[in-house]
Design a protein around this nucleic acid. Structure first.
Lengths: 246, 246
DNA sequence: CGTTGCCTTGATACCTATCAAAGGGGGTGG
DNA sequence: CCACCCCCTTTGATAGGTATCAAGGCAACG
């Protein structure tokens, strides 16, 4: 199985074999981070770009009153903080949800790669733009979709993103997050998430069990969540399992 | 008065006089766009970067059911769509709120500028990162702040952004948006925005009248909205009028 | 086999939407 | 310059979605 970073970038443009090898070499074998711990600490070398090679993580903000808002999920292949070193300091935290295998690309190595390959530069650039689009879509979800629509949309998004890097099996994909996490992401309590999940199950749209999600009716779920995969900007079809949302 | 794009970029790094002249030259005199019309149409030359030189605009998504979600406000000096031409197509619309004076930088001109001046490249890059941080902050607002906190936070953000480009007069700044717009941005109805505004006024925190906002107690408003200007990543202090939120 | 999370369920309160209608303020045409 | 009109703002009453508080069930783990 190829490197998830390679698969992720190949969602945005075709890469040469040299590009692929260069990426795999630069990102290294990675190091393990335990579940439920923070990946990015203030004080870490800011000239390094972290990449999720395996497992799930999330960006979040922790409030003093105990409330936590997750603003995005990071899946295998996702860069954690591209170019964040250009800013003064982090305004949020990145935490591992599952055990995470974390690759690192040094700033100079990244610059050398993108300087040598316009395709790689384009891929990284498009990845950043697509990430921004995902963030806008979350704003839209939280602003104008009901609880059940939000969940439906999130499941469609996560399945599509996982499909793009070949981590789905048909309509089934990993979903290693608790109802508490879902609540923190959707701006709701876990109690209400629980009831909404039951509603989704009752409609026969999904099965969510043992950290795995199955979407029984992708078209109906997408319709319910007003999901249109265009915003993900996945233009190249990589991997054999690609989302089939109508 | 200098160019708003120059003032905006100088929020992120120092620019040389040559950089400033180069920017002003590249952006041109601009063209007027009427209020309440769309700025970016599908099919416009995607190799051009649009910049707001005067007036307010917003990014939004329009739903079939009539609901509209505004995902960000664009103020003078804000680039509309940097590098969006790298993607297949727009996933949202940009519309003028007030009459807007719109500058344009051609793709090649932009590339030539940033290739010549590392400071300019850094400034554009930081601007993009700061914009992403603002988007995350909106996600946080919609996900985990109450109605009154959201409004308080938004007013703090807009005042701070306007202050950074010298468009405030002490605690007063333009606020040319209707309660309907506020509702579309905060994920609430205009009716509820109206009641929340009355509450803010009743607490003696703000005056909002004739399209102008005055913040009577910046520290208290920031506290109420859990506003911390760090996420704006405005590092250089430009312009004589800078926000004084505690 | 007990502990610890996580999931589930119930009752109540609150925030916000919805529907409806009236009051103001600024802009435009006469 | 004034009158009209449209859009924005304001207000009231009711409904609905979601939070909160509390407690029990279940399953994985040490």
């Amino acid at each position: 199985m190829s490197n998830p970073l390679v698969r992720k970038l190949e969602c945005y443009t075709r890469l040469s074999e040299a590009d692929r090898l260069c990426l795999i070499d630069a990102v290294g074998p990675g190091r393990m981070v335990a579940a439920r711990t923070d990946i990015i600490h203030e004080g870490d070398d800011p000239r390094t770009v972290n990449v999720i090679l395996d497992g799930w993580a999330c960006r979040y903000r922790q409030f003093i009153n105990g409330r936590r808002q997750i603003v995005s999920f990071l899946l295998p292949g996702d860069p954690c903080d591209p170019h964040i070193f250009l800013l003064d300091d982090m305004d949020h935290t990145i935490g591992a949800i599952t055990p995470v295998l974390l690759g690192q690309i040094s700033g100079p190595a990244l610059q050398a790669m993108t300087a040598r390959s316009p395709q790689l530069e384009l891929a990284f650039h498009r990845e950043a733009l697509a990430t921004a689009a995902v963030q806008r879509e979350w704003t839209i979800s939280l602003g104008s979709r009901t609880g059940i629509e939000r969940l439906a949309h999130l499941f469609c998004e996560l399945h599509a993103r996982l499909a793009a890097i070949g981590l789905t099996e048909g309509n089934t994909c990993p979903m290693p997050i608790t109802q508490n996490d879902l609540g923190d992401a959707m701006g709701q309590t876990s109690v209400h998430i629980n009831r909404t999940l039951q509603e989704l199950r009752g409609m026969g749209l999904i099965t969510l069990r043992s950290r795995r999600l199955t979407i029984h009716d992708p078209a109906a779920l997408a319709r319910l969540g007003h999901f249109d995969s265009a915003y993900l900007h996945i233009t190249e079809q990589v991997g054999r399992a690609v989302a089939q949302h109508a």
